[in-house]
């Protein structure tokens, strides 16, 4: 099995008057170890696609296979488990807990998949080393730069050893230097065999990916 995920003729329609079609017949395949960028202007359906890919939302019609398993017919609980264990999220605004140390924030990854705390700690230390923040364990996120915060968030996503790293505008809140450091980190992760899917509107971010897919008005081109 070479595909991490397959979207087949996926539609997502929001009930309104008139109904809003956010995704229309989307077909998308992502191979294991691939670095894919999805680009599109705001309002093009990027966020909806992210939610569907991240198992946070269910398509109105079509099929979504994640590691070969059909997710559209899964029970909510099973889908939640899959999301927690196989997908790592990286958000534009980091979503770190400001009152918890860097190490504790990273340890949150895998909290809901039943990994013992000792194991999560070992993995968190390893993940922080991987993103180059091994010396910042005791810091609170408020004392870190934007780039460092995003690297902490990436470390948190890596803790569970996910099949897919799903990044939503990962550099949207960062300046040039920090953007470069995060993109360098993505290259390192790619080289180590991770599957990366980056949603962005920034052409320089998309340039670094192996493959670019454009989404306009809910359609992939």
């Amino acid at each position: 099995m070479t595909y991490v995920l397959e979207l087949i003729a996926v539609n997502r329609v929001f009930p309104a008057d008139p109904p809003v079609t956010a995704l229309a017949g989307v077909d998308l395949r992502v191979r294991r170890g691939e670095y894919l960028a999805i680009v599109g202007p705001s309002g093009s359906g990027k966020s909806t696609l992210l939610n569907v890919l991240g198992l946070l939302d269910v398509p109105s019609s079509g099929n979504y296979l994640f590691e070969g398993a059909e997710t559209t017919t899964m029970a909510d609980r099973r889908r939640t488990e899959l999301r927690g264990s196989r997908i790592g999220f990286v958000f534009q605004s980091f979503h770190l807990l400001m009152y918890r140390s860097v190490l504790e924030n990273v340890m949150l990854g895998g909290l809901y998949t039943g990994v013992p705390a000792a194991v999560r700690r070992t993995r968190a230390v390893a993940a922080l080393d991987r993103v180059g923040l091994g010396h910042r364990h005791r810091f609170l996120p408020s004392r870190l730069s934007g780039g460092e915060r995003q690297r902490v968030a990436i470390a948190r996503a890596l803790v569970g050893d996910p099949a897919l790293l799903l990044c939503d505008e990962p550099t949207g809140n960062l300046d040039g230097a920090n953007t470069a450091s995060v993109l360098d980190l993505f290259d390192d992760l790619r080289a180590a065999g991770a599957t990366l899917l980056v949603i962005t509107h920034d052409a320089t971010v998309a340039e670094r990916a192996d493959r670019r897919v454009r989404i306009t008005d809910g359609r992939i081109s």
Partner: peptide, 16 residues
């Protein structure tokens, strides 16, 4: 709100 969303994204169920 954001923390709740994050926890849900990381596999927390409504019950959790």
């Amino acid at each position: 709100t954001a923390e709740i969303g994050l926890r849900r994204a990381m596999g927390a169920r409504r019950r959790d």
